[in-house]
């Protein structure tokens, strides 16, 4: 499915979403009920650097400033954060965190945010886009990852054969969509054979009002401990009011 086909499927009532020459996606889609969905995103696996963050975060802030409760759809196909000495020198961590904060501000301010991973989604750029939304869905050929296995082998100094073997049974570290579903990062995988607009509506109706990804990971068995540990900490913290 091309990006154009995907957009047409998402918004059969029409849209003005464009992919700019810098591979940023910006525009507005129309829902069947006539209301709007604001769209931002990254196309073509482009790496996300400082130049890419600023137009996306500006758009999100504009949506918040206008008010209302229009949902924001974040389309994600990015190979990761831009690896560049210059962008690091300028403080890329602040730029990526800024985009995250803008999306979280939007959702806090009543704009439901949905991530749709339709290609790559890696590392810091994954955090600043798809993982900064209220609910993340994916198409079946999406390939989210923290790092690929060869790079992981290099950093952990483990043989690639062993990592490959382990990755078959260990969603907690292995790259790919099935693992991200199992740990609770991806709430649902859409069916490209069915109308995307219907699936978008269903997802919009299911946007959670709090972060439930650790509970999802526990239910699915890919991340069994996190939710329980966070709860235990909160209980201990609230039980001790005098140090």
């Amino acid at each position: 499915m091309t990006l154009a086909e995907m957009l047409a499927g998402l918004f059969p009532a029409g849209h003005d979403v464009v992919t700019r020459p810098d591979h940023l996606i910006l525009g507005t889609g129309r829902r069947a009920n006539g209301s709007s969905v604001e769209v931002i995103g990254i196309a073509d696996g482009e790496a996300l650097g400082i130049a890419g963050v600023l137009p996306l975060s500006a758009r999100v802030l504009d949506v918040v400033a206008v008010g209302g409760s229009a949902p924001i759809l974040v389309l994600v196909d990015t190979q990761g954060q831009l690896m560049s000495r210059r962008d690091e020198m300028l403080g890329l961590n602040e730029y990526l965190a800024h985009l995250t904060k803008c999306l979280l501000l939007a959702s806090h301010g009543g704009h439901p945010t949905i991530g749709l991973n339709y290609g790559k989604a890696v590392a810091g750029a994954f955090l600043a886009t798809a993982l900064a939304t209220d609910i993340l869905v994916a198409l079946p050929d999406a390939s989210p990852a923290v790092m690929d296995l060869p790079s992981m082998a290099r950093v952990t100094k483990l043989p690639i054969e062993r990592l490959t073997e382990l990755s078959k049974t260990t969603p907690v570290f292995s790259p790919g969509l099935a693992s991200m579903v199992a740990v609770g990062a991806v709430a649902e995988v859409w069916d490209p054979a069915k109308p995307l607009a219907d699936q978008l509506e269903a997802t919009l109706a299911a946007v959670p009002t709090r972060d439930m990804r650790d509970e999802l990971g526990a239910e699915r068995g890919g991340r069994r401990l996190a939710a329980d540990i966070a709860l235990r900490v909160a209980r201990q913290a609230s039980g001790v009011h005098h140090a």
């Binding site: 955090l127 990852a145 790092m147 952990t156 790259p175 740990v183 990062a185 990804r213 996190a226």
Partner: peptide, 12 residues
Amino acid sequence: LQEANAGELAVA
């Protein structure tokens, strides 16, 4: 990296 997906999600 040994728990890369859980770690990434924990950051989020």
